[in-house]
């Protein structure tokens, strides 16, 4: 196992995340906040709560999962497809890295990023609805 290569890919992807913090983290949080405002607060206030759970709180897990899944797919796809598009994937292909090791690096980074985004959305949701 070339664990160092996996780690290198992971770190590289995470540094891309830090570099593009606005697109990758701030943007999804702002969009979900809008959802909370529109659906949770504005429409939600007209909908009765069921078994003590308000409509605003009810949509929180759904919105988190929505972003968790789209972001993890986007990130993993982008991380692999963009180098293929520019041609810089040659480096990974010519390195002593197996497909599995590369996949773990890219997918692991994508999973970490989307988990961070999910957690951040969860924290922001606390400002909009109180369970």
């Amino acid at each position: 196992m070339n664990i160092r290569a996996t780690l290198t890919i992971y770190k590289f992807e995470m540094s891309r995340f830090r570099r593009t913090i606005f697109q990758s983290l701030v943007a999804p949080i702002i969009t979900t906040s809008l959802y909370f405002v529109v659906f949770g607060a504005a429409i939600g206030s007209k909908i009765e709560s069921i078994n003590g759970v308000s409509y605003g709180s009810f949509i929180v897990p759904g919105l988190i999962m929505l972003y968790l899944m789209t972001e993890s797919i986007n990130n993993a796809a982008f991380g692999i497809y963009f180098p293929k598009f520019t041609g810089s994937i040659f480096e990974v292909l010519s390195a002593p890295v197996s497909a599995l090791e590369a996949t773990i690096g890219y997918v692991g980074a994508a999973a970490t990023k989307s988990t961070i985004i999910g957690l951040m959305i969860f924290f922001t949701s606390n400002f909009f609805c109180h369970a």
Binding site: T8, I9, K11, S15, T86, F90, S94, A95
Partner: peptide, 29 residues
């Protein structure tokens, strides 16, 4: 093996130094 390809493919947003360390890491060093 070290390979210098004919085209000039890059992840243009990475820094010069980091991209070299990245190459090194891919080879397990």
């Amino acid at each position: 093996i070290g390979l210098v390809p004919q085209e000039l493919p890059f992840d243009s947003f990475e820094s010069v130094y980091n991209t070299c360390q990245f190459s090194r890491g891919l080879f397990g060093m």
